[in-house]
Design a protein around this nucleic acid. Sequence first.
DNA 1: ACGACTTTGTGCGCGCGTTCACAAACGCCT
DNA 2: AGGCGTTTGTGAACGCGCGCACAAAGTCGT
Lengths: 277, 277
Amino acid sequence: MPGLTAVDEDDVSSARRDGAHAAEGAGRHLGGAAVVPEATVARLPQYLRALTALAEAGSRTVSSEALAEAAGVGSAKLRKDLSHLGSYGTRGVGYDVAELQRHIADRLGQAGSWRVVIVGVGNLGHALAGYSGFASRGFTVVGLFDDDPAVVGQVVVGLRVRPLDELAEVVGGPGSAIAVLAVPAQHAQAVCDRLVAAGTRSVLNFAPTVLRVPDGVDVRKVDLASELQILAFHAQRRAAPAAAAPAPGAAAPARGATGASAGPLLPHALRRVEEVV
Amino acid sequence: MPGLTAVDEDDVSSARRDGAHAAEGAGRHLGGAAVVPEATVARLPQYLRALTALAEAGSRTVSSEALAEAAGVGSAKLRKDLSHLGSYGTRGVGYDVAELQRHIADRLGQAGSWRVVIVGVGNLGHALAGYSGFASRGFTVVGLFDDDPAVVGQVVVGLRVRPLDELAEVVGGPGSAIAVLAVPAQHAQAVCDRLVAAGTRSVLNFAPTVLRVPDGVDVRKVDLASELQILAFHAQRRAAPAAAAPAPGAAAPARGATGASAGPLLPHALRRVEEVV
DNA sequence: ACGACTTTGTGCGCGCGTTCACAAACGCCT
DNA sequence: AGGCGTTTGTGAACGCGCGCACAAAGTCGT
């Protein structure tokens, strides 16, 4: 496995990888498809992406070997994953690209475009609002929210930034939207509470904090700094095979003869500390 | 476990959850601390954050129970994790906050500030460059790179955006920097190859693509759209307990009587498709 | 100084996920 | 039509990580 990429690790996890999903009901097997392991669910998006690429390339069918190669996993793992969704392959031939693509997309709820609200519009939230990858995967940003008077009312990607009081108008109702949390860590829990109170059942949290939510609410965490720290751990491990705690690898000297960037690094004054996430 | 947050997922990945770390040498146990499980490594940043918060709150010592509560994990898991780093606790008392904080920080290489380069400065890359969470965790952005003539030369957070040709000047050398990949998916592999050629050993990839790297290079992936898709999977599962594939929950109608945002949703024209990541 | 209480560190069992290996199923060629 | 090669689907073994429960170890009170 060395030398290859993988899902979060997360692992994910890692991460995965360490999902906290409610593990709902037991394991009925009605219809044919039943409980899908969390680890498998985490890989479905990758399979779907690989299938989309194959479809655009003109492939009609794929073998598990080829699809696994494209998705960066082992073929056995892929077959077992797909077997949890049902038997959509033909022995001796492989999988029908379009059919499998449709089935996975259905499972991921990509059929009906999901509504997404972004809470916290500053730096990261702003970037996420303009992220084209969301729209191309069936997600529609229908609301931007923030309580900072400096950004409320501002139009970002065609949407007016609204105060958090108006959350219920968009989030509430039957088809509750998925919420993306991109607020400072200190306010993350409070804002999350308001989201849940407004009816949100799915939250993607970018704030480096542990969120407490009632049962039935699904939270996934994306921690940018942690990812870097995990990389740093392995990098340090590579650099220091023997000694206890020497120089990690980039102490103070040798910052490269760049020239232009030799000036002030990271002028913090531009943004208040911990402003966004 | 329902109703609680978790890593990554890690996930979890990761996630993972599902790290692709080279698993290097076997498991020597020199000095006292040996091989640290990947799942444990993924949690160290969370522990460190909790410890920092406790230190600022004035706590001198913490019990595993209290620290676990703050980090959102079980106390037994936390104790076992810490035991992999060595015995830094006192029975009957708990852990010395400052001491444990220092030890974990050392393990994560936070002692010497790590150099980070961001490749791909548009939308997301721009936001990451200004992300204050990096600096506060010991990471210093020392270079911004892009090959788009429209952004090269531009000054973003005090750093001039430079062409990819100058990568080796910053990345190369002994203390190789960590690279953050925020380029369009089509170019991710090519840019990654150039990074590796320049000496990069650690890459944080935001592009939704499988990266092939030689052994010894560590890659972690952050896939924003996938996270949303995983949430969508569970949300759909909640909404459709019986039927095969009905309406996921937000088909076409009822988009909420927002008013201001009823206009054009996500004006793609603002940015070319798949522009950033 | 000694006993009782508190908390760490860990040995053990369990369940999930991954991998191997193979039988069943399908197309194709003769 | 029938055999042959190919590929899926899955049973079983393996390994990792998690949680329980307890002994070791230290502190505090008397």
